[in-house]
């Protein structure tokens, strides 16, 4: 694992989640969500939830298209947290409970962050 400072100062406790969840595209965030355990998903949620307000305040200081690398990693963690939020808050399982197969949905626009 990359050591120490891939996230901005003040967010060090989220460092253990970077490898799995700092993901730039929606396709990949959704794939990782569907292939993760609820323990992993809840781990991310529990770690980010109390800091999300701070994360948003911190990231709001930068233009979206010109963020330092460490801030961008933090944004990616926040984006993955949005991806897994319904799994924790609504479904209590990784994917939507009764839905059309995600693998059959072709994503045609996926702007990386």
């Amino acid at each position: 694992m990359e050591s120490s400072n891939s996230l901005p100062p003040g967010f060090a406790e989220l460092e253990p989640f970077v490898d799995q969840w700092a993901i730039s595209t929606e396709v990949e965030r959704n794939r990782v969500r569907r292939n993760s355990s609820m323990e992993e998903i809840r781990g991310l949620y529990k770690a980010v939830e109390p800091r999300l307000s701070d994360i948003i305040e911190y990231l709001n200081e930068f233009p979206l298209d010109d963020m330092p690398d460490d801030a961008r990693q933090l944004l990616r963690l926040a984006m993955s947290t949005m991806e897994i939020t319904p799994a924790v808050e609504l479904y209590r399982q990784p994917d939507v409970v009764h839905a059309f197969d995600a693998e059959r949905v072709e994503i045609l626009v996926d702007d990386p962050v």
Partner: peptide, 11 residues
């Protein structure tokens, strides 16, 4: 316009 709006758009 900013990260807050981008994150809200994502959820």
């Amino acid at each position: 316009a900013n990260a807050a709006e981008r994150i809200n758009q994502e959820i």
